[in-house]
């Protein structure tokens, strides 16, 4: 099969270490056997089901559609060639996310000397202070989001957007739960700052419907 991205040839070589052909043992019982057509079809279907969310996660990390596609491609290839490490019945999406983000950070280290100018370019480009109707200008929000450090964007996506629990995110990111909470908090604070969202003002300007909901749920007026 031809691969468009020339870097993937190297990536595939990296995935396949210099081991003797005879060392390619059959999958152990309980592991995924992709030589079985039914198993292979099931895995492919699951990979396909996760492709869009993988790509969305990749976009949040790379901030670039083309780079995200390359990252997803690398992730899929690595996942396929490492399926013997995947335990059937466990969360494949979480496993794929882990491979994707590890690949991203590995690539980032390799390209450490390449300085992205995107962050500097985006700084200060927010249009106007957002309306306090709960619907921020999505373009401005993306711009603000893109200015955050990779580690904060990652956690904001995993927990804030996708709703993963702290422990799940911690496992995927290979850090402690406290680190996840800290990154989440700092990321939200920075986003609030960039979007000029003030907690007191937000409460004052919350519309009557929201106030009614808050009241129903036990909040008293401040």
């Amino acid at each position: 099969m031809m691969i468009d991205n020339p870097d993937l040839t190297a990536a595939a070589a990296q995935v396949d270490p210099p081991v003797a052909t005879s060392a390619k043992a059959k999958p152990a019982p309980g592991t995924v056997n992709t030589t079985d057509p039914e198993s292979a079809a099931r895995v492919k279907a699951e990979l396909m089901d996760n492709l869009k969310v993988l790509r969305a996660f990749a976009i949040s990390l790379t901030r670039n559609g083309s780079a995200a596609d390359d990252l997803v491609q690398d992730t899929v290839l690595k996942a396929w060639s490492n399926l013997h490490k995947f335990e059937p019945g466990t969360n494949m999406r979480a496993w794929l996310f882990t491979i994707l983000r590890n690949t991203f950070y590995s690539n980032r280290r390799k390209a450490a000397r390449e300085v992205s100018d995107s962050e500097g370019d985006m700084a200060g480009r927010l249009a106007t202070k957002p309306a306090h109707d709960g619907h921020l200008n999505l373009r401005d929000f993306r711009t603000a989001f893109a200015q955050l450090p990779d580690e904060q964007r990652e956690v904001l996506m995993l927990v804030g957007a996708m709703g993963h629990a702290y422990d799940e995110a911690a496992k995927m990111c290979g850090v402690r739960i406290g680190t996840i909470k800290s990154r989440l908090s700092r990321g939200r604070e920075r986003l609030a700052e960039l979007m000029q969202l003030d907690a007191d003002e937000a409460l004052e300007l919350t519309d009557r419907a929201t106030s009614a909901v808050l009241s129903e749920q036990g909040f008293k007026s401040v």
Partner: peptide, 22 residues
């Protein structure tokens, strides 16, 4: 990307040992 997944079995990607990130 869709094509990549569909044709995965055709790729010569042998099981890797100790692949980083998995």
């Amino acid at each position: 990307l869709k094509d990549l997944v569909a044709r995965l079995g055709e790729l010569d990607t042998a099981p890797a040992q100790g692949e980083p990130g998995t």
